[in-house]
Design a protein around this nucleic acid. Sequence first.
DNA 1: CGGTATCCAGCCTGATACTG
DNA 2: CAGTATCAGGCTGGATACCG
Lengths: 148, 148
Amino acid sequence: MAPHKNTSPAGRHRDVRPQPTAANGGEPDGEVCRQVLRILALIGDKWSILVIGQLRDQTLRFSELHRAVTGISQRMLTLTLRQLERDGLLTRTVHPSVPPRVDYTLTPLGTTLLDSVVALGEWATTHRQEINNNRRRYDATHPSRTQH
Amino acid sequence: MAPHKNTSPAGRHRDVRPQPTAANGGEPDGEVCRQVLRILALIGDKWSILVIGQLRDQTLRFSELHRAVTGISQRMLTLTLRQLERDGLLTRTVHPSVPPRVDYTLTPLGTTLLDSVVALGEWATTHRQEINNNRRRYDATHPSRTQH
DNA sequence: CGGTATCCAGCCTGATACTG
DNA sequence: CAGTATCAGGCTGGATACCG
C-alpha cells in the first residue's frame, strides 16, 4: 500500500520471488509458504480484511465504509480500496450525480477469499484462550525481558 | 516483533481491541474479522510463516533454520522464534553440549495453525493467475498512476 | 553454535489541508 | 461526498560487532 514501491525495509511480506539462495536447485522454502505469502501481500495489511469483512453481504459507499471500519483514515481507506479493486477483489461503481456517489461491492473472487479467511478466524476463536495462557506462562517463566 | 511496544504507526494489525467507535453498542466491525486480525498479529509478519513451514514435519536447529529460510537475518530469526515460542506454536530445546545445540519443533497447536494456513495457500494457488490478470487489466485500464 | 546489543535507513500511517 | 497531496513521526528490519 502507500505511494507504491517497495525495496526492502519495513515492507512486510511483499517481494515474494523465487530467490534460490545462490545457485541451488531452488525451493529452499516450501512452495506452499510462498503461496501463503502472496495472500498476505494482498490482505495481510492493517485494513484490507476489515474492509472486505464489511462488504461481506452488502454494497457500501465510501462514507459508509469510512464509518463502518473503526479508526481508518480517509487516506488509508482510499489506498486500501484501490489495492483491492486492482486485485479484482471488489468493484468500484461511480454514480455521476451531485453530490457524487461511489459504491463498493465484493466480486465473486473477493467472496471466495473472505470465505477462506473466515476459516482462519475460526482457528483463532478456538485457540484464543490457549494462546493467551501460553503467553502468560512464558512471560512468567522467562524472567528475562518482561518488557521493562 | 522487534523491541516490543506498539502505540500506533507502522504497527500493522496489532492492537486489536474492542474500541466501540464512541458510545455505541459495540461491534462496528465484524467479530470474525477481529479474530482474523488476531492471527495476523501472530503470523502475519514477514517471516513467521516461512519458519513454521520449515518445521512442518521436522525438527531443526537454529543454524539449519537460518539456512532454510532464505534471506532471513540472524536477528529476525531469533525474534521470530521467540515470538512463536511465546505463543506456544513451537518449542525450543537446548542441549547442554559444546558447541551448543538448540532444536526447534512445532507443537500440536502450531501444526493445526499451519494446516489452517495451508488452506489459504490453496486459495492463492487456485486464483493466482486470475489475480495477475486483474492487475494487468487494471493497470492498463487506469492510465492514472502506473507508478511513474 | 546460538544468540544479544546497537545503530539507523526507510517504509507505513495518521493528520491536515485542499479540490471537483 | 469522495478523493488527492503533503508532511512528519514511529516502527520495522538489515547490518554489524561482540559474548558464552
